[in-house]
Design a protein around this nucleic acid. Sequence first.
DNA 1: GATCGGCATGGAATCGATTACATCCACGCG
DNA 2: CGCGTGGATGTAATCGATTCCATGCCGATC
Lengths: 341, 341
Amino acid sequence: MASIKDVAAEAGVSVATVSRVLNDHPSVSEDARTRVLTAVEALGYRPNAVARSLRTDQTHTLGLVISDVMNPYFTELARSVEEEARALGYSVIIGNADERPDLQDHHVRTLLDRRIDGLLVSPTDGGSPLMLGTARGGTPMVFVDRWIPGVDVPVVRADGRAAVRDLVAHLHGLGHRRLAIIAGPAATTTGSERIEAFREAMAEYGLPLPDAYIGQGDFQAESGRRVTEGFLDLPEPPEAVFATDNLMALGALDAIRARGLRVPDDIALAAFDDIRWFVHTDPPITAIAQPTGELGRAAVRALVDRIEGRTSRSVTLPARLVVRRSCGEAASSPKDLRSTT
Amino acid sequence: MASIKDVAAEAGVSVATVSRVLNDHPSVSEDARTRVLTAVEALGYRPNAVARSLRTDQTHTLGLVISDVMNPYFTELARSVEEEARALGYSVIIGNADERPDLQDHHVRTLLDRRIDGLLVSPTDGGSPLMLGTARGGTPMVFVDRWIPGVDVPVVRADGRAAVRDLVAHLHGLGHRRLAIIAGPAATTTGSERIEAFREAMAEYGLPLPDAYIGQGDFQAESGRRVTEGFLDLPEPPEAVFATDNLMALGALDAIRARGLRVPDDIALAAFDDIRWFVHTDPPITAIAQPTGELGRAAVRALVDRIEGRTSRSVTLPARLVVRRSCGEAASSPKDLRSTT
DNA sequence: GATCGGCATGGAATCGATTACATCCACGCG
DNA sequence: CGCGTGGATGTAATCGATTCCATGCCGATC
């Protein structure tokens, strides 16, 4: 592979001049510029990003550590992050933590070893020493979706509180009184926030929320199935189940099907995170939709602001309830049959 | 951030000795080793991967250029690639081409600029000059899922030919005679292979395949919708539609729903690529399943073999038909209600 | 006691870029 | 005509590692 030295030799100038042309420094003669560009073309020269990074201490790369790539919500997030980053001249390296703190640490470490310019994290847990150290240690960082309390890092997320209240209102309006929830890990902010919002909304409607109706999941499908089976085994099973993420909703659906029960006739189901497949499930699933793409883009903008020395602030966007048929009584208009992209 | 020089100073040895300890070179005294390790610990030193890469000309990084991350099939592929790579000591940088040749080229170029050790590609098209040049230029490379004919690069893929024949047999057995196909781009090998296999199978069963029943899609949901609308507008619409990827199947489902038609009563539907959501759609969709995880792992092994100087060969694994209810007449056993992971 | 082999270690070159500093030259002005 | 100014260019230091080569020392061998 041709190096800058080869280009310099070919063009009959020094490497400094080549470098100046490449970084369009003002003081280069027109003659030198064309000679260099011709040589670049002739040799098919491409600057070595590794060498450049070593010298400039910038990699133009962002790290994205995500809780679970197989979760369509995070896939979409990752996609929008990459798009916005590309638009701003950055590449993205994605690390999939698979909801495992050890894997999360592994990815943070290798990303730091690679000297990424900034880190976007959706933390799986309350914060390992490594994560906390990184946040304090000056690496530009932004939390997206989930965050770690007590750490001075901007957070870009959706607030589902109002939407959860709308959901409870919706269920209440349909006559459901015994509502159960499949919660996410308490160590995650989204996990605790969603159940808290649910609790408050239940209280608001004067509905009891017995412990038996609070199932502990881990944001993976299998836990949704397990918890739902527990609900169905109760002497008095709930009339509605609210899964706090889409994968657990999928697991819940599995469990309900396995018993030969029907949604929503036998039991209602709703989910946090709206994904396009929910339109096509049997029945279409009522869900709380986050502005996923906007979240990803805002997170990148906040991070790049930080990297490039500007200040950046936290961003909170609203989530909204999308009513479909899984809680009973179809919505009046047929609009919900459309995909929600 | 502490550098090797700081460690050397702290330990009272030269940088050479520090480097030897870190790369556990045999000839280092026990004394020096412990002094260095203590210093490393004390300073929280981590080697700078950028500098190391510049010197050794190895990044321990693989590039993965994928046609479309939002496609669950590729998401799963990416996940298994990352897992196997991690097990072998490599990181992965994913580039999402979004089925766009220009984006694909963009990612190949930036990956090469970063001097990745090897490239895994699922090409969107027949091969840009850049892609062909890279393949010829000695960068270790492996094609996965799709490939470019006439290029000397190992291919890791699934062979769907037998499964497509099984599908046609299945449809024929259910009494369907007018079968239509939503094909992928002819420029992709999977696109052309699938339609060819379908054609052969149709011939085998003595079924005609008029041009009107061959729709041209692009592996994205929207094209599946458009093509299916065309089918439904025909004076004699098909009795069954075979979408050659999961997103186009989703689009087809949209189109069918929009007309108020029902699957499989009014029209049968089958898809290439089995994804876990197909179990939960209304109705569950009959699909051809690829051994996705195994493909990803095999591809990484082949690539790493190449990188590390061993020889590597192409791998072809079989795909298989998973019968559900979308083509009519439920399968006899209820086994298909399980998730296929 | 001189020579030799081998181990531990340090000095310095190197990878491919960027960039501070020095140099040179042309031009304009007093 | 001499000097200052500024633009174009080259030399060399630098980033943080790895690694070749030279050196010094120790014990073994003759």
